[in-house]
Deep mutational scan, measured.
Amino acid sequence: HNGKLCKLKGIAPLQLGKCNITGWLLGNPECDSLLPARSWSYIVETPNSENGACYPGDLIDYEELREQLSSVSSLERFEIFPKESSWPNHTFNGVTVSCSHRGKSSFYRNLLWLTKKGDSYPKLTNSYVNNKGKEVLVLWGVHHPSSSDEQQSLYSNGNAYVSVASSNYNRRFTPEIAARPKVRDQHGRMNYYWTLLEPGDTIIFEATGNLIAPWYAFALSRGFESGIITSNASMHECNTKCQTPQGAINSNLPFQNIHPVTIGECPKYVRSTKLRMVTGLRNIPSIQYRGLFGAIAGFIEGGWTGMIDGWYGYHHQNEQGSGYAADQKSTQNAINGITNKVNSVIEKMNTQFTAVGKEFNNLEKRMENLNKKVDDGFLDIWTYNAELLVLLENERTLDFHDLNVKNLYEKVKSQLKNNAKEIGNGCFEFYHKCDNECMESVRNGTYDYPKYSEESKLNREKIDGVKLESMGVYQILAIYSTVASSLVLLVSLGAISFWMCSNGSLQCRICI
């Protein structure tokens, strides 16, 4: 991952900044910058967002509201009850120091605090018919004063009620008058409520006091790749198909172990950190130390980045220098085999997901714990399936590479015959000098055995068991695999060879 928040398929997220979902939807004055928000790819909250409900109280069923919003990608904020005409018999300019803005008392931008007009609070009834052709999110509140005197001074009615009804919602609220500790300079409380109004449905408000009335509502448009994440990451000019709280993932790998919460087309989250597919040879310690064997393909974004291909070729060293050249036929066979294998694994496992966190309130801790156990169970199954699949494929890959290298080895052996000696570690020792032209003939299969047989015969008789390297004779190393990324691999195959001279070296080696 890149540690950044990015656009998702070209669409920017909605960053709530210092506000949370509650503050944004109710219209906390400190969240005025969010009022123009219309569309987004996903919503970003920060872990310690401080601006929620400015007048103390709870947004009821907040967790369910977050779940609903996680599939919303755009909205239209509109005046559901026009301020100047909807409440002619009531005062609608209630403000509070708890919702101060720029040093002055204020109130929510989407709600109206209705109080008595003169000395009376006549029963009010108002309704709205949803003609938007889509779901409408309606929010309101109920004020709970701290004393009967406060109730009387604001609403005149000691036994007030609030009723809200639609086809799918029907509740009646009565204020709970009680002494409470002071929070944000208030002994009173406000509880906030919401409902989704279906197209064509009607919502009716009736009250004799204590109503925090809707002013603006939201017509919602769903987008199934949307979601809500909690993150401290910063926004950058970048684009992605998959976003996590820790950063964007741009990967076609089937798995990731970065974060379980994802938005967009994302690899499946697994616990494993070692889900690797081999593309090189079986481990040979001396070669492995030099980083030549054991190439791997990573299938977990965050564990290993991208696929690494092994390729086969020849390396030689003689009086004229040293050089490398790919054996294109065996390399292409290996590439085709690995590509098919990788595609097979991805096809089997690479279903892209959006995974969002589930919200539970403080009273639902047991449910949250149960949900976590269920999620953990599914996660263990996914991890096991992934590891088992790759384990089985790896064994076949190792066998496949062994065969490829063996074929190259036999190709060289059949040409050199007794003009060189096998020394048991995949290397041959020449009994004759071999210049670049000679080396090329070994690589392309045109090695002239009779041409060098007499010199080889004489050297075999002279050496008589002495280690060949100390006599200045020449080696050919018969097994060799270097490691390159897919891009470098293609470039390498396009070149005939490249040279690395070893000044004054008397050794001649050709490596497979």
Rank of each mutant, 00 (worst) to 15 (best):
residue 481 S to H: 06
residue 442 V to P: 12
residue 415 Q to T: 07
residue 402 D to W: 05
residue 483 V to P: 00
residue 432 H to N: 00
residue 433 K to N: 06
residue 260 P to L: 01
residue 337 G to R: 15
residue 294 G to T: 15
residue 291 G to T: 05
residue 265 E to S: 13
residue 314 Y to W: 01
residue 421 K to R: 12
residue 510 I to D: 01
residue 470 S to F: 12
residue 380 D to M: 09
residue 402 D to Q: 09
residue 307 M to A: 01
residue 448 D to E: 10
residue 445 G to L: 10
residue 456 S to C: 12
residue 412 V to S: 11
residue 445 G to P: 03
residue 501 C to T: 11
residue 482 T to F: 12
residue 256 Q to M: 10
residue 434 C to K: 02
residue 294 G to A: 14
residue 323 G to M: 13
residue 414 S to D: 11
residue 265 E to F: 09
residue 342 V to L: 15
residue 451 K to S: 14
residue 283 N to I: 11
residue 436 N to H: 11
residue 482 T to E: 12
residue 344 S to C: 15
residue 378 F to K: 05
residue 333 N to F: 10
residue 419 N to A: 13
residue 463 I to S: 03
residue 236 H to Y: 11
residue 471 M to G: 12
residue 366 R to P: 09
residue 361 N to R: 03
residue 288 Q to E: 15
residue 304 W to M: 14
residue 378 F to T: 02
residue 406 K to N: 12
residue 386 A to T: 10
residue 438 C to Q: 07
residue 437 E to L: 12
residue 428 F to Y: 13
residue 379 L to D: 05
residue 461 E to A: 00
residue 494 G to A: 14
residue 398 L to P: 02
residue 390 V to A: 02
residue 246 Q to L: 12
residue 466 V to E: 08
residue 237 E to P: 15
residue 401 H to G: 05
residue 506 L to F: 05
residue 349 M to R: 04
residue 471 M to R: 07
residue 422 E to P: 13
residue 450 P to I: 14
residue 386 A to K: 03
residue 246 Q to D: 07
residue 313 G to R: 01
residue 252 N to S: 11
residue 360 F to D: 07
residue 444 N to D: 06
residue 394 N to A: 04
residue 383 T to Y: 10
residue 250 N to H: 08
residue 249 I to H: 09
residue 425 N to L: 13
residue 467 K to D: 05
residue 479 I to M: 12
residue 310 G to F: 10
residue 399 D to N: 13
residue 437 E to C: 07
residue 505 S to E: 13
residue 282 R to T: 07
residue 296 I to Q: 01
residue 365 K to C: 11
residue 454 E to T: 09
residue 411 K to W: 09
residue 278 V to I: 06
residue 469 E to H: 08
residue 362 N to R: 13
residue 406 K to R: 15
residue 335 I to G: 04
residue 269 Y to P: 04
residue 337 G to Q: 15
residue 294 G to M: 10
residue 382 W to R: 08
residue 333 N to G: 10
residue 309 D to Y: 09
residue 512 I to D: 06
residue 479 I to E: 11
residue 429 E to P: 01
residue 402 D to P: 05
residue 250 N to A: 15
residue 505 S to Q: 15
residue 506 L to V: 15
residue 484 A to M: 08
residue 311 W to P: 00
residue 333 N to L: 15
residue 456 S to G: 15
residue 489 L to C: 10
residue 399 D to I: 14
residue 480 Y to N: 13
residue 235 M to T: 12
residue 364 E to Y: 05
residue 438 C to K: 07
residue 268 K to L: 13
residue 316 H to P: 00
residue 291 G to R: 04
residue 360 F to L: 06
residue 409 Y to H: 09
residue 427 C to I: 01
residue 501 C to E: 03
residue 281 L to S: 00
residue 388 L to H: 11
residue 453 S to N: 11
residue 424 G to T: 13
residue 249 I to W: 12
residue 472 G to A: 07
residue 249 I to M: 12
residue 313 G to W: 11
residue 402 D to Y: 10
residue 261 V to A: 02
residue 428 F to P: 07
residue 408 L to Y: 05
residue 347 E to I: 10
residue 268 K to I: 13
residue 286 S to K: 02
residue 314 Y to F: 15
residue 436 N to Y: 08
residue 289 Y to Q: 05
residue 254 P to V: 07
residue 244 T to G: 04
residue 334 A to V: 11
residue 373 K to T: 10
residue 285 P to D: 08
residue 470 S to T: 10
residue 262 T to R: 06
residue 475 Q to N: 10
residue 358 K to I: 11
residue 363 L to R: 15
residue 435 D to T: 10
residue 259 H to V: 04
residue 394 N to Y: 06
residue 275 L to H: 02
residue 382 W to G: 08
residue 470 S to L: 05
residue 383 T to D: 09
residue 247 G to K: 04
residue 480 Y to T: 06
residue 395 E to A: 05
residue 382 W to L: 05
residue 373 K to I: 07
residue 263 I to C: 09
residue 474 Y to A: 11
residue 265 E to K: 12
residue 501 C to Y: 04
residue 451 K to W: 02
residue 254 P to I: 09
residue 297 A to K: 09
residue 462 K to V: 13
residue 271 R to P: 05
residue 243 Q to L: 03
residue 500 M to R: 15
residue 502 S to W: 02
residue 272 S to R: 02
residue 462 K to H: 07
residue 426 G to Y: 14
residue 407 N to L: 00
residue 357 G to Y: 13
residue 497 S to M: 14
residue 383 T to I: 06
residue 363 L to D: 04
residue 321 G to I: 06
residue 280 G to P: 04
residue 284 I to K: 15
residue 336 N to C: 05
residue 474 Y to R: 11
residue 301 E to V: 11
residue 375 D to I: 06
residue 505 S to D: 00
residue 467 K to G: 02
residue 472 G to T: 11
residue 241 K to D: 01
residue 371 N to V: 05
residue 361 N to E: 01
residue 332 Q to N: 08
residue 301 E to H: 01
residue 394 N to L: 01
residue 281 L to A: 03
residue 363 L to C: 01
residue 428 F to K: 01
residue 461 E to H: 04
residue 452 Y to M: 11
residue 458 L to C: 05
residue 497 S to K: 00
residue 332 Q to H: 05
residue 290 R to G: 00
residue 403 L to P: 01
residue 464 D to I: 08
residue 305 T to W: 00
residue 303 G to Y: 05
residue 323 G to P: 03
residue 243 Q to E: 14
residue 455 E to G: 07
residue 394 N to I: 09
residue 238 C to A: 04
residue 314 Y to A: 02
residue 314 Y to V: 02
residue 311 W to A: 03
residue 300 I to R: 05
residue 382 W to A: 06
residue 349 M to N: 12
residue 481 S to A: 08
residue 494 G to Y: 06
residue 460 R to I: 11
residue 305 T to I: 15
residue 357 G to Q: 07
residue 320 Q to V: 02
residue 308 I to Y: 08
residue 481 S to M: 10
residue 237 E to L: 11
residue 433 K to Y: 12
residue 483 V to Q: 00
residue 242 C to D: 04
residue 275 L to I: 15
residue 370 L to M: 12
residue 468 L to P: 03
residue 371 N to H: 09
residue 286 S to W: 00
residue 469 E to V: 12
residue 401 H to W: 06
residue 415 Q to C: 15
residue 470 S to C: 01
residue 446 T to D: 12
residue 374 V to R: 05
residue 335 I to A: 05
residue 336 N to P: 00
residue 409 Y to R: 11
residue 262 T to Y: 15
residue 244 T to E: 02
residue 432 H to D: 10
residue 427 C to Q: 01
residue 234 S to D: 10
residue 352 Q to E: 03
residue 318 N to S: 04
residue 324 Y to M: 07
residue 373 K to F: 10
residue 374 V to Y: 15
residue 233 A to L: 15
residue 437 E to I: 13
residue 353 F to Y: 15
residue 437 E to G: 10
residue 496 I to C: 14
residue 486 S to R: 00
residue 480 Y to E: 11
residue 504 G to S: 10
residue 371 N to Y: 13
residue 380 D to Q: 11
residue 426 G to K: 10
residue 252 N to P: 02
residue 391 L to P: 07
residue 372 K to H: 04
residue 339 T to M: 02
residue 420 A to W: 02
residue 466 V to R: 13
residue 270 V to L: 15
residue 383 T to S: 08
residue 279 T to P: 03
residue 476 I to F: 15
residue 473 V to K: 03
residue 244 T to N: 10
residue 289 Y to L: 12
residue 313 G to K: 06
residue 445 G to C: 04
residue 423 I to K: 11
residue 421 K to S: 00
residue 467 K to N: 12
residue 276 R to Q: 01
residue 291 G to V: 09
residue 277 M to H: 01
residue 398 L to V: 10
residue 462 K to S: 07
residue 396 R to W: 15
residue 475 Q to C: 01
residue 244 T to C: 07
residue 391 L to N: 10
residue 240 T to E: 01
residue 499 W to H: 04
residue 471 M to D: 02
residue 427 C to F: 11
residue 241 K to G: 09
residue 232 N to P: 10
residue 449 Y to P: 12
residue 395 E to K: 07
residue 316 H to W: 07
residue 269 Y to L: 02
residue 332 Q to E: 14
residue 252 N to W: 01
residue 469 E to I: 00
residue 298 G to R: 08
residue 466 V to A: 11
residue 266 C to N: 10
residue 257 N to K: 08
residue 406 K to S: 03
residue 387 E to A: 09
residue 466 V to S: 03
residue 429 E to M: 08
residue 272 S to W: 04
residue 350 N to M: 11
residue 286 S to D: 05
residue 507 Q to R: 10
residue 354 T to Y: 14
residue 471 M to Q: 15
residue 268 K to V: 12
residue 498 F to R: 00
residue 503 N to Q: 07
residue 245 P to V: 08
residue 376 D to S: 10
residue 326 A to C: 09
residue 404 N to T: 09
residue 232 N to A: 13
residue 309 D to Q: 10
residue 305 T to E: 05
residue 371 N to K: 10
residue 479 I to K: 10
residue 379 L to M: 08
residue 488 V to S: 01
residue 486 S to A: 15
residue 279 T to Q: 12
residue 453 S to I: 11
residue 414 S to I: 07
residue 505 S to P: 00
residue 512 I to F: 04
residue 459 N to W: 03
residue 311 W to E: 06
residue 414 S to N: 07
residue 455 E to Y: 07
residue 477 L to C: 14
residue 273 T to W: 05
residue 450 P to C: 15
residue 498 F to M: 05
residue 255 F to N: 01
residue 281 L to D: 06
residue 295 A to T: 04
